[in-house]
Simulated scan of single mutants.
Amino acid sequence: MNGVALMSFIGTLVLILAGTTLAGHLTARCGIPAVLGQLLIGIVLGPGVLNLIHPSESITQFAEIGVILLMFMAGIESDLQQLKKYLKPALSVAVSGVILPVVVMGATSLLFGYYFQEALFIGVVFSATSVSISVVVLREFKALNGKEGATVLGAAVADDILGVLLLSLMIALVGTNSGTSSHGGTNNLLIQLVFQGLFFAGVVFLVRWIAPGIMYLSNKLLIPTGRTICAMIICLSMAYLAELVGLSGAIGAFFAGIAIGQTSAKKIVDPNIEPISNAVFVPVFFVSIGLSVSFNNFITALPFIFVMTVLAVITKWLGGELGSIWAGFDRRSGRVVGTGMIARGEMALITAQIGFNAHLLERALYVDIIFVIVIATLIAPLMLRLALKGLRNSIDK
């Protein structure tokens, strides 16, 4: 990158950071997740509206680092102890909340004329849940530590892990198919599957022994940021290895985050990495998604967007409610859990972007899915508030 190009990118970066900060502030004041403000500013500044910022290699590279850091933080914040405490209802909610979107939204996508691979991936995208949005509402009603809030958090951990495994499988299959068509043999297929199996076996070793050992040794380093640097080395190494075996780097980062999250270094690493990622790389990631949005075919795609938005809400709501009722909750508590699982947010956006980069989604379909994610996420906190008010009224009576 020459000097002129560098200064041009820095100017673009200033515009992105200023725009996302202002948009995030305004949306947060309206009770809407700040992440949606960052996404919307990308749409406004990009080719879809004002045409001030265009996709570039530098923005793409920053966005990819943003995805890796986002998934790494998601892994760190995945509380496996919470999942153990409410294991039965959490697993019941997570499994039913993953199966319903995959089956129903996948089948509906087939009816809209999409290929099986595309339809299946659409289901995988909408199997994701973003509880960061639900946590704000649960905290507002002082329900975060109740059985409903704890089940939503526990189910979200299992939900994320199931979603990442499904995403890994989809990308592995795409890599396998492309390898088969280009080389015409099964040797490459088998080798790739073996390496991917070794990768997941390595994840177990990483969580149980390697990460705790490295973080223990990092305490001996005579530099103040030693533990954070070692955590970043683990994160980037896992992202690199995941890409090397045909998976997404974001998947490797997620499991690296889970490994770090199980060590005592979590309390130091998380607050040190979060400001770096959220201040620079993550805003660029969400803006880069907005830059892909175009309104050229919006009217034509409106039936698909409307139907899929309705299904995105209903499948998670019913999946969560039925799963919690099967685990012994009453209907009002089940409704709180179900509506608490509706929000998709950053997890669905990351999954969609990974699928787009892996050629699982065409650009037009990718844009339509972004619209559905945004609308469903805006609806989610409103429905959760109504469910919590219903639960509170029933308790007061």
Rank of each mutant, 00 (worst) to 15 (best):
G3E: 11
G3L: 12
M7H: 07
F9T: 09
F9D: 07
T12C: 00
L13N: 03
L13D: 05
L15E: 10
A18R: 00
G19M: 02
G19N: 01
G19D: 03
G24Y: 01
T27V: 01
A28V: 01
R29E: 10
R29D: 07
R29Y: 00
P33F: 06
L39K: 12
I41T: 10
L45D: 07
L45A: 09
P47G: 10
L50H: 12
H54W: 07
I59W: 09
F62S: 06
G66K: 07
V67D: 02
L70I: 07
F72G: 02
G75A: 05
Q82N: 14
L83T: 12
G97M: 01
G97A: 02
I99H: 00
L100P: 06
L100R: 07
V103Q: 09
V103P: 13
A107L: 15
L111E: 05
Q117S: 08
E118W: 04
A119I: 02
A119G: 03
A128N: 01
T129V: 11
S130I: 00
V131N: 08
S132K: 13
S132E: 14
S132C: 04
I133E: 02
V136S: 09
L138F: 03
K142C: 02
A143M: 14
G149C: 10
A150L: 12
L153A: 12
A155N: 02
A158M: 08
D159F: 05
I161N: 03
L162D: 03
L173T: 09
T176N: 14
S178Q: 15
T180E: 01
N188T: 05
I191G: 08
L193Q: 14
G197M: 11
L198P: 01
F200V: 05
F205C: 09
L206R: 02
L206H: 04
V207R: 13
R208K: 15
G213A: 14
G213D: 04
Y216H: 11
N219K: 14
P224V: 10
P224A: 13
A231D: 04
C235I: 03
L236R: 02
L247P: 12
G252W: 02
F255Q: 06
T263C: 09
V269A: 10
I273F: 06
E274N: 13
I276P: 05
S277E: 01
F281C: 04
P283Q: 07
V284I: 05
F286Q: 08
V287E: 06
S288C: 07
L291A: 04
L291W: 04
S292C: 07
S292Y: 05
S294T: 14
N297W: 10
T300H: 09
P303R: 04
F306R: 09
L311Q: 05
A312H: 10
I314N: 11
T315H: 08
G323L: 10
R331N: 11
R332V: 11
R332H: 13
G340Y: 12
I342G: 07
E346G: 08
A348S: 12
Q353F: 09
F356D: 02
L360N: 04
E362G: 12
F371W: 15
I379K: 07
M383R: 00
L384C: 00
L386C: 03
A387E: 09
K389C: 03
K397T: 12
